[in-house]
């Protein structure tokens, strides 16, 4: 096996406040190759904080035995070192494009700024237009000149992805990137991400709460609960999950083809929380 893009070993995130310490991520370990890895869980499971920690963006206190990107440790990087990685080699697509695009800047200018590398403006613009085309925007020239408020939600999300890609990242982290989108648009955006993983040899961490979507889209699935990874599964075999939590989640999701009169509800078991050394 080639060198993994990302290695995470015993990642812990704690939040300290006046009322005590909240241990939101507990001993999380995984590695990522050039693949689509899903982290699923309910709200508060720690999946988003895990993703943010990889980018050094969590406000909490991070500790880990190993947190390495392409062999380089991400622990204790200086701001200058982070700038070389964040937004260039690792990028993140946020949930809602409305809050991630600068409302008073034209899309084109934002794309050029994201590219932020030496080269003639014309060459950069050609690249930016190519990127807009890559995310299936039909009239890239028009979108290039547009302001964010002139775009629909789906277009905005695709522009966001174009902005992430113009830097040619090796790792893309997508935090519920499509939950604000309509189903059909959502799938089209995912198809673009899928192409990119295949053609650019990129790693993708896909954070979601949608088990059905994840099982059809990703290669591997990590199931998180209360800050811990309960189970790691091959996405194709998600239906064969062993952990009662994963099975419970699958069971309580309404099924279009086989509706049941009463949905089974999830019974949480305190023993799912393994004790963690502090």
């Amino acid at each position: 096996m080639t060198q993994p893009i990302l290695e995470v070993e015993k990642l812990n995130i704690r939040f300290h406040s006046a009322s005590g310490t909240n241990h939101v991520v507990r001993d999380v370990s995984f590695t990522l190759g050039r693949e689509k890895l899903a982290i699923v869980g309910e709200s508060g499971s720690g999946k988003s904080q895990t993703a943010r920690a990889i980018l050094g963006l969590t406000p909490g206190q991070v500790s880990a035995q190993k947190l390495a990107f392409d062999g380089q440790s991400l622990l204790g990087l200086s701001n200058a070192e982070w700038r070389k990685i964040r937004g260039r080699r690792i990028t993140m697509v946020m949930q809602d494009p409305k809050y991630s695009l600068n409302p008073v800047m034209r899309i084109g200018d934002q794309l050029l700024e994201a590219a932020a590398r030496k080269g003639s403006r014309a060459a950069l613009k050609t690249r930016a237009l190519e990127m807009l085309q890559a995310v299936k925007i039909r009239d890239p020239e028009r979108v290039f000149r547009a302001f964010p408020h002139e775009l629909s939600g789906g277009m905005g999300q695709r522009v966001m992805i174009a902005m992430m890609l113009v830097t040619e990242p090796e790792l893309l982290i997508a935090d519920e990137p499509t939950s604000a989108l309509d189903v059909t648009v959502r799938l089209q955006v995912l198809a673009i991400l899928d192409d990119l993983v295949k053609t650019r040899d990129m790693g993708l961490i896909f954070i979601s709460h949608d088990l059905n979507l994840v099982s059809t889209f990703c290669d591997r699935v990590l199931v998180m609960y209360a800050g811990q990874i309960l189970e790691e599964l091959d996405a194709k075999h998600l239906q064969d999950a062993k952990h009662p939590y994963t099975r419970g989640l699958l069971a309580c999701t309404p099924n279009l083809e086989n509706p049941v009169a009463v949905l089974p509800t999830l019974q949480r078991d305190p023993s799912w929380m393994a004790p963690v050394d502090r």
């Binding site: 005590g20 241990h23 507990r26 209360a226 929380m273 004790p275 963690v276 050394d277």
Partner: peptide
């Protein structure tokens, strides 16, 4: 020391 509360909250006093 091990974690006490299942929610992850630890009240100091």
């Amino acid at each position: 020391m091990s974690s006490t509360a299942s929610t992850g909250w630890v009240i100091a006093l």
